[in-house]
């Protein structure tokens, strides 16, 4: 049999482009991280692990990412449930509404949050007007602002996988459960939730991994306490002008994200395997 060897024809152009714009700069970053005037050395990495700033940022990156993912899940799940109940026609309309913020530039949205959350922002102004006194709820440059911004961005990434899982549930299961006497709460916890676990896991993992590399939102809405690894890279590049360190942090970030992605992928595979026992012939 003749092997089809024309794959390179289809993927060639994209491969060349990716090589030029992604892998070459990436290789450059990796080289920079181990290149010192004295020659090749891992000194930058040594300094990283001795740096309280890096270690703190490393953990807060995880903290912020995981909490943003969880908040998105809590807010996105009911949206997905609502979408799943609609007729296909209404569903596609609602999906557009879910996607509108997703299509808006992150930068624009983030500045919009500045206007909303500021000390004299719309929310504080409204509160002051309602209670007839000067109210200044601190909503900006803190964890709340960063989570709000990130959640706003991440929700579609939760809604769609969860929705796919919910739509895959046979509706007659609900009917069967209802006819046999089950109330909505039991149906949710015994049927809907367990059967949507694949979507929940996919949403949670992908949003966490995505969050690890966030830059604009923590930079504009957060304080130093919310600084994430990409902000640290920026700090070393533009303020300290230590490209050696900046590159080392970038490599660490890349490694972390890759490991997290691989780990969640592995977990998902194992999970789906445990859910699909081998089919037995009739």
């Amino acid at each position: 049999m003749k092997l089809r060897n024309d794959g390179i024809l289809w993927t060639g152009p994209a491969t060349v482009l990716m090589l030029l714009v992604l892998f070459v700069p990436l290789a450059f970053v990796v080289v920079t991280s181990v290149w010192t005037p004295a020659g090749l050395s891992l000194a930058a990495y040594q300094r990283l692990f001795g740096s309280a700033l890096f270690l703190k940022t490393f953990w807060s990156t995880f903290e912020v990412s995981i909490s943003a993912s969880l908040v998105s899940l809590l807010l996105g799940y009911p949206i997905a449930m609502h979408l799943a109940r609609q007729t296909p026609r209404m569903r596609s309309i609602y999906m557009v509404i879910v996607l509108v913020p997703f299509w808006t530039s992150v930068l624009v949205k983030t500045y919009a949050f500045l206007v909303l959350f500021g000390r004299n922002g719309l929310i504080n102004q409204a509160l002051s007007a309602i209670f007839q006194m000067n109210i200044e709820v601190p909503m900006l440059f803190n964890r709340f602002a960063v989570l709000a911004g990130m959640t706003n961005y991440l929700i579609p990434f939760v809604v769609f996988p969860v929705l796919a899982s919910l739509l895959a549930i046979d509706r007659s299961l609900y009917m069967a459960a209802e006819v046999s006497g089950a109330k909505p709460a039991r149906i949710f916890f015994r049927i809907t939730l367990p059967l949507s676990v694949p979507g929940v896991l996919a949403g949670a993992f992908s949003t966490t991994v995505m969050s690890l590399g966030f830059f604009v939102i923590p930079a504009l809405l957060g304080s130093r306490k919310e600084a994430m690894m990409s902000n640290l890279v920026d700090f070393y590049t533009r303020e300290v002008l230590d490209w050696n360190m900046a590159s080392a942090i970038a490599v660490m970030l890349l490694g972390t994200v890759t490991l997290a992605a691989l780990g969640s992928d592995l977990f998902m595979k194992r999970e789906s395997r445990s859910r699909t026992p081998k089919a037995v012939p009739a």
Binding site: D170, L173, M175, V179
Partner: peptide, 15 residues
């Protein structure tokens, strides 16, 4: 759920 019926479906509808 309050009609006290049982139902059997063509596609079994097992959990």
């Amino acid at each position: 759920r309050e009609r006290g019926l049982g139902m059997v479906f063509q596609n079994y509808a097992l959990l």
